[in-house]
Structures are given as C-alpha cells and as structure tokens.
Design a protein around this nucleic acid. Structure first.
Length: 554
RNA sequence: UGCCUGAUAGUAUAAUGGUAGUACGACUGUUUUUGGUGCAGUUUGUCUUGGUUCGAAUCCAGGUCGGGCAACCA
C-alpha cells in the first residue's frame, strides 16, 4: 500500500492539522451566493470542498451566502442544489447565512458594547473618501467617537426601520491607517428595505459578507474554510471578528480560481449573455454553467475528473478547454452507445444488390464487451456523408472516389463505379457495386480496404435535427482581451443541421444516454427532442487526425 | 507610491536541501471494420542576479514580471 500520491497544499494543511490532533475530523462548506447559476469554476470549488471531507472522513455543508436580498432568488437556490447533486455530492446540511441573522445581529451588538463598532451617518462617497488610499491613511470622522449608548440606540433604530436605505451604516472600529484597506473600519451592516427570499420582510438591515461569512463558518464549526485568492485581504478581518467575538476558530485558506480558454467565468458576464440573448438561457449548451454542460452532454464524472486533473494551487492559471474536452471524450468513449447518423447525405445506389434488403447487426460499443448489438437495416439505396466522396481524391484519401473501395460499417465492401452531377456540377448520386462475400463478420472476399464509412439505409432513415456547438468566444483569454468581452463572441458557435438522417435504432433508444455518432462525435438528446422530432446536441467532436492532415496540406 | 500574493516544458501540476517527474497538447510509429480507441516512443522546463551549502526548483538577499486590494457586492 505504498500509494505514493502527491497532495495539494490544502490537503497538506488538513493532514498536518489532523496529525497534530488539532481536529478530530474536518468540516468544510460550499458557500454560493444564490444570485446566479453555478459554473465550471464552482465545480472546482465543489470538488475541492466535498473531496476534502470525503477523503479525510469529514462532512461538507451547503451554505447559501444570502446576505444581499436584492440579488438573490429562490430559483437560483434550486438550481444550485440541483447542480451540486448532479455533480455527485451530498451535503451534510443545507444551511443559509440568513439562518443566522439573529445571531449575527447579536454579534454586532456585542461589538458595539465593546466599543468596537459605531454607527456612521456618512454617505457612501464620504466613507470612501475618508478611507484614504493604499498609500495614505484614512481619516476619522465625528461619528467614530459616538458613545456606546448612542451607537446601541442608533443601531436599534436602524433595525426598526427608522432610516432609509443608505442613511446610516454600522462600521467596525478597527484601524483607519491599516495597510489593509479592508481593516479601515469596514462597513458591517447596511440598511436595505428589501424583501429577502427567506426571511421576507423581517429585516431591513443586512450584514455584509465580511460580517457574515466568518461567523457562519464559526457557527457551523467549519474547520477549513476554503475560498479563492481574491479573499486573501479579507482573511485579516475574518480572523479579527472571530477573535473579538471569541468564536470557533475557523481558518480561511485560499486557492486560485479556475480560468478556462475561450470562455467566461464570471456570473456577471454569464448573466449578461443570458439577458442580452447571446445564448438561449443559463443552460444553453455553449455556456460554462453546470446546467449548460449537463444539457450539452458532459458527464458529471468527466467534470469531476477534470477538476481532479487541473489541481489546486495558488498561482493564476488559464486551463486549456481541450483538457475538459479530453475528459469528456475519455468518459464517453467507454460509455457512449454507437449509432450511425449522416449529416450531409449523398445517395448511393448499389447497382448489383438485388435483394429487397436485410437486417444487419452492429455492436453498441466496441469498448464494452457486454454492450450487445443492435439491428441495422440495409438496402439497395443508402446515404453516406457527402464529404466521404471525392471526384478527384487527394493522395491519402481512403474514402469513396471513382474506382475506389470502402467498407460500409458492419455491412459490405462497396466500390464506386460511377457518379451523377446536376446542372451546377454538384454530385447527386453515386453508383456502386458491392462485394457479396465481404459481409461483415463473414468476410471471405480477402479484400482489405483502408476506409470504413458510416451510412444509413435510405428507406429506413429517420430525420433528426443536430445542433453543432463550437466555442462561444474566439479568443483564448476572454477576460483579459482588449475591450468588451461581447465583441469576442463567436458568431458561428451554433450550427444547426436541420435534416440529418439517422438509423432507426435511435428512435427506440432511451434519451438519457450519451451517444457516439460514428465518425462524427459524441451527442446527446436535447430537452427539445420529441418522439416526432429528434434533436441532438453535439457534446464534443471526435479527435480528428484526418482534418488535421487536410489542414496541414492546405 | 503602500500592502498582500505568486513565478517549474505550450497548458496545468509534482518534487517539502539529494536522479526535475506526471497529465493534457504536439510529433513518430503501431493496432484497428470509427482517419475514433488502444499501445509504444519522441519533444519541450526550474523568471533573473548574487549568497548559504558537499549539494538549491526548494533556504537567504536584491531585482524582474504577473495577479489582487481603496463596493452600503460576494
């Protein structure tokens, strides 16, 4: 059992804490604000937090950081719960920062009583100005020296709704000269006469993130509070509140958030894409949201594998999206059911085929010995892919061309004898002859061909719509690109193939599974799909070395 | 200008004073009734300058470059 496995820096901390007997077991939390849908960056955090607890025998809470009633909605709560579950994780408790509003209010009162908080009547601009700059200390105002009694009364009046939004705030009294801007008397409570998705109209004052997050962690006995790098300057404050209020000493640790090529990862930008109809919704298959990826057909296991592979560290990163696609292919290759679908049909007439048709069999998944087979009807007229024929083939083109032979997957070897063009010079039909002895599984022809094509019997083909997705943006580092990120939206990120021809087996398939359309890629049925109108999403294409070859030649 | 962070192949991530490794990518070859898959192999790296040390990616000092911090957002 010398399973030598390297730990990320947070795992090292956890192991050290456990080894030192600091904790008997650990508790982590995943703390989203319910103001949007979860994206792949959240998946990294989810896998980390839940993974840590799973690995070290602890538990993880799902806690909604719902301290800002104006941006939060129940719809988001539901989608977040759904996404976490779908990713395969179970939380110990479903909690809300708003559960603690009474306690947090009590903390504020205690701070006031200790002379460590005061009510400030200044405007937002005034407070900002009085904070100084990073190189210049802030200056105290007259409110800073209010008495405890006065502060207590004023804060109570704030709670009772005697003031309008923005009229007063409660501030922690810390250090206006601190080199850490967050320590310059941060605002901890503000007035918002707004309806809260859980507490309704009970409150008109709400704690700020900094006055809710650490306390919530402490209340839940969170041992390791893991968040992203931008919260590093908040840590000093986090610790200050815990110390002054004498709470359970939760510790905050920060890791680098995920950035991925050709995509955006901020809720603000994702919301904008939705609101301005650049996509069809939060679950548009082009979105980096969990729900988008789910609809696109990315397996949860593939996303977990991806999160595992990218690692956890503190340096900024930009992960190539092709790694995610690799993980998706790796998973789907083992599980996806193979089917044949022709996207751009070209009719082939097998001139010497005299039978009225026959039923052939083809394996559902060559990677799965227990996958079984399905029936595939074959007949005199079939469709193949238009680009599987070339009138004048290039050197290493192993498909159909005048005089050239190919195998039809799970069927016969055919030879292209002739072709027909229309008035515009487009090839409309191919005339081929088949080799009767070359039937798949009982081939005695002795002929070896280099190309194998997917095909569909014309008489049995069923129509289907296929949606092909490409990256949503056409620059690698969207967040750091010059100008408005929307200028980089890839106009060709969606291509619809309205009339593809699918083999009939697809009609009977259950729609929850991943498919591989032979030689075309991985697909899944979209939620728009109905028994009378099949709709498929391309999850990801197959690795295509031939396309690479062609590109090189060009 | 201040404070906080970070820097290892193209991209990520290990090596915790002792052989710079792994994955993805790229490139070869091979297998294949998917130009898929599998298999084998090749390729490319410690930001810089000093110092400590028998020995430095690792420790120390200076520099360079990247990121963050001055919301009644989280």
């Amino acid at each position: 059992m010398s399973e030598e496995q390297s730990l990320n820096f947070i795992e090292e901390i956890v192991e050290a804490d456990l080894a030192a007997g600091k904790y008997q077991s650990i508790i982590t939390r995943f703390p989203p604000e319910p103001n949007g849908y979860l994206h792949i960056g959240h998946a990294k955090s989810i896998c980390l937090n839940f993974g840590l607890a799973k690995k070290y025998g602890g538990s993880t809470n799902l806690r909604f950081d719902d301290t800002n009633p104006v941006t939060e909605e129940t719809e988001y709560v539901e989608s977040i719960k759904n996404d976490v579950k779908w990713l395969g994780f179970n939380w110990a408790e479903e909690l809300y920062a708003s559960n603690y509003f009474d306690q947090i209010h009590g903390f504020a009162v205690r701070l006031i009583e200790m002379g460590l908080a005061y009510v400030d009547d200044s405007s937002s601009d005034e407070i900002a100005a009085q904070k100084g700059t990073p190189t210049q200390a802030g200056t105290p105002n007259i409110y800073r020296s209010r008495t405890v009694a006065e502060n207590l009364q004023l804060f109570e009046d704030m709670r009772l709704g005697k003031y309008a939004d923005g009229e007063k705030v409660l501030r922690a009294k810390i250090d206006l000269a601190s080199s850490n801007m967050h320590m310059r008397d941060p605002i901890i409570y503000r007035i918002k006469h707004a309806h809260h998705h859980r507490t309704g109209n009970k409150w008109c004052i709400y704690p700020m993130y900094d006055f809710a997050h650490g306390q919530s962690d402490a209340i839940e006995n969170i041992t390791h509070s893991v968040c992203t790098l931008e919260f590093i300057p908040h840590r000093e404050l986090y610790n200050w509140f815990i110390e002054k209020l004498n709470l359970f000493p939760s510790k905050q640790y920060e890791f680098a958030r995920l950035n991925m090529t050709y995509t955006v990862m901020s809720k603000r930008k994702l919301l904008q894409l939705v609101q301005e109809n650049h996509v069809t919704g939060w679950d548009d298959p082009r979105m980096s949201t969990i729900s988008g990826m789910r609809r696109r057909g990315y397996p949860a296991a593939a996303i977990r594998e991806f999160c595992d592979r990218i690692g956890i560290a503190k340096r900024d990163n930009l992960i190539d999206i092709s790694l995610l696609e690799f993980c998706v292919r790796e998973d789907l290759n083992k599980t996806a059911v193979r089917r044949m679908v022709v996207f751009d049909p070209l009719k082939v007439i097998i001139t010497n085929y005299t039978g009225e048709g026959e039923i052939l069999h083809s394996e559902n998944n060559p990677e799965d010995p227990n996958g079984g087979t399905r029936e595939v009807p074959f007949s005199k007229e079939i469709f193949v892919e238009r680009d599987d024929f070339m009138e004048e083939p290039s050197k290493k083109y192993f498909r159909l061309a005048p005089g050239q032979m190919v195998r039809l997957k799970s069927a016969y070897i055919i030879k292209c004898d002739d072709f027909v063009k229309d008035a515009n010079g487009n090839v409309t039909e191919l005339y081929c002859s088949y080799i009767p002895e070359s039937k798949s599984g009982s081939d005695t022809s002795g002929i070896n061909v280099k190309g194998t094509l997917h095909w569909v019997s014309a008489a049995h083909a069923i129509p289907a719509e296929v949606r092909l997705y490409d990256r949503l943006f056409n620059v690698e580092d969207v967040a750091n690109a010059e100008g408005d990120f929307k200028d980089y939206i890839n106009k060709e990120s969606l291509t619809v193939v309205p009339h593809a021809y699918a083999e009939p087996a697809l009609l009977k398939d259950s729609m929850g599974v991943g498919f591989q359309f032979l030689r075309k890629g991985y697909f899944c049925a979209d939620k728009d799909s109905t028994p009378t109108k099949l709709v498929f999403n391309r999850t990801v294409g197959l690795k295509d070395t031939w396309a690479k070859e062609v590109k090189k030649g060009a």
